[in-house]
Design a protein around this nucleic acid. Sequence first.
DNA 1: CTCACACATTGACGAACATCTATATTGACA
DNA 2: TGTCAATATAGATGTTCGTCAATGTGTGAG
Lengths: 127, 127
Amino acid sequence: MAATASRTTTSPRGSAKVAVPVTAAGECCASVREPELSEVDATALARGFAALADPARLRLLSLLTTAEAGEVCACDLVEPLGRSQPTVSHHLKVLFEVGLVAREKRGIWVWYRAVPERLDQLRGALG
Amino acid sequence: MAATASRTTTSPRGSAKVAVPVTAAGECCASVREPELSEVDATALARGFAALADPARLRLLSLLTTAEAGEVCACDLVEPLGRSQPTVSHHLKVLFEVGLVAREKRGIWVWYRAVPERLDQLRGALG
DNA sequence: CTCACACATTGACGAACATCTATATTGACA
DNA sequence: TGTCAATATAGATGTTCGTCAATGTGTGAG
């Protein structure tokens, strides 16, 4: 029950805006600053932030974004992370699936690099 | 095993940087752009992003940040969210505990507002 | 004092997650 | 072809999370 319709008491300042949003479902840049963020857009955004909601993945991103070569061999990510190889592989997969990192297989090794455009996209959703 | 030390094969370009970071543990603004983000900083950051990793909470933030009055009564958040009152209360608590929203009790009602500085802080951590 | 309402807390339950060990897959080289 | 190294996948396990119904807490009206 909205406060505006309740009791005989003084209502707490007119009810919340219900302005119908223009937010197209598949739009490029949903943001928290948009009125009435749709459930669909919110779910997509949440998936992005969920990928950032783990210390191991944040540290992976840190290692990748600050790598002077712009890319790092997966084999050089295991030890600094202090987790098992399968765990690191798992986290890299999560980051890859949400588009935060790209990978390229060269011979035996797989090289990972950050995708700054995707980071910017998520940053944009916060402001 | 780092690729640099393995086999007789051509090693994949010198091993990753191991530069000791200056990142003070309790520092204000840890970021993914910092080299060797510490586990402690990463965990703190991850907690922040975890609060953003849910559609319901993102929609709550959207409702709060775009409220023209700058604040919204909790009673006006339940229906637009399409979740039960206890669930909405739970999500507001999560947002409150990570500092993304502030609350003020006035009489029967509780008014919530977004804390843009905190949002900016998380945004800063991405760039 | 008592009732009705706003909001928070509790407890339960299923889903999702982080991590590990073990194993499969892929590519290089002898 | 067979072996070894780098990654990925599978399966298992303990933990965290989102949700709701039920209940508790506090506040204003009568």
